[in-house]
Structure formats: C-alpha cells, structure tokens
Amino acid sequence: MGISMKRLYCQIVTVFFMMFSIQTIADEQATGSEMAVGLSGKKPYIHVIHEGRSVKVQRVQDPDYELKGYYAKTARKCPPFCLQPMQVDSSVATIGEVEVFEFMETKLRDNKGLLIDARTPEWYERGTIPGSINIPFTTLSKEGTAENDAALAIFGGKPRGEVGTLSLKLEEMGLLDSDDKTEKWDFSNAKELVLWCNGPECGQSPRAIKGLLKVGYPANKIFYYRGGMQLWQLWGLTTVVPGE
C-alpha cells in the first residue's frame, strides 16, 4: 500500500513537472513569435541601459533589408585598414554577437563588466553599440599616462601604491596572493571587458587590448568582439547615436 502511494506521488510530480516544462516552452515560443527576426534562438530582443536610458536591442525585422552606407563597403585601403587576425593574443578570447548579447544581459547589467568602444571619439559620435562607453585605443595603449591610469581605475583596477620589496618577493615566491596583481596595479576586482571597434578591418580595439595586456590587465577578463560595428550593422542590430 505504502509503495503504491509513493509511486502515485512520484507520477503526480512527474506529470506536474512535464506540464510546467511544456508551459515554459510555450511561453518562450509565444514571445518569439511576435518577432520575425529574433536576436538568437532564445531571445527576440534584449534591453540595455545606455546613457541612463533603456534601449531595446533587436534586429531589423524586414527580411528584404539591405545594408547601405559606410559599413556596406567591402574594402578600405590596406594598409592601414587591413584584415585583422581572429585572435589578438592567444590568451584573449574572441567572441561573436550571441556572446555579446549574453554579456549585455549578465555582466553589463550587473555592473561586473564593461562594453568598450575602443575607437576614437569621432567614430563613437557617429553611432555606437548600445551600452558601450568610449575609451579610445589611444588612451589604452599609453601606459603610465594619467588618462591610462584613470581608465584602469574605471575598469576596477586599484593602484597599489608603494609595495615593499619583501611583499613583492613573497608574491613572487607564491607565499602571498599575487593573482591579478602587478607591481603597480591590483586587478583582483577588475571588471570583464568586451572591446570592439569597426570590424574585422579595424586595428583600434586590437591595439587597445595589447595596451591592456602590457599593463598586466588579466587576459581572462578581456574579450575581443572582432565583428565590431560592421557586423553589428550587417545583422541589422540596433545602434545609438550618443547624446540623441
């Protein structure tokens, strides 16, 4: 009698769980069906905070839409606008659009990450990816300048001040925690960064990444979105003009 009661209880729980799963899938499909062109398999759109306001990031819904304007160009003079390798550095991960969406929804929203438009301000002013802040590569590639120090502080780096020789020695020997620390900076609580520029032909974010690695910013906290503005626009994704 006890066993059959247990079995019945188990069956009820299973049925309840199945119904719940079906309902969840149905909910997701209902949301997705409102839009013909979703962001990814799971998301029709996402919201990102840009300059204090919420911006809906979605794709252009017209299946016949074709990219026009500057980012539709297939070639620029090379050098200097040459195709970039897939990886800036073997220690830095290269990511695509879906990973950027994921980053926007998690690290960026939770203030644990920053989306960096590493282009010069004149590019940024003409349009950017929602949620991005403009820290030009010229700032990130000049180690030791006040601008560079300020940027690293924004990223969550802490200047270490005077570090004693003994402490440095103990860190070198592994007796003191030296993870994500350099002689000058403590990057233990530094944010994750996604850096991007104009796309595969752009060398601005690769230069910025190289600058960050040079000052000892942890490579596992740096991500390179190689597609940049060109691929972002190719997929008809929302862009914003700063200040508008």
């Binding site: 839409y65 200097p80 004149e122």
Partner: peptide
C-alpha cells in the same frame, strides 16, 4: 600619427545614422 590621421579622414566618410528602417520599424 599616420594611422591616426588615416582613421580621422576615414571617420569623415561615416554618416551619423542608424541603419535605414521603414516607418513601422
């Protein structure tokens, strides 16, 4: 410097607009 000036002259070719959308969009 030449890289910066090349970037700067290239930036002038970019129109400050988002992708064209139809009225519904």
């Amino acid at each position: 410097d030449p890289y910066l000036s090349a970037i700067s002259s290239e930036a002038a070719k970019v129109e400050a607009t988002a992708p064209e959308l139809d009225s519904d969009e």
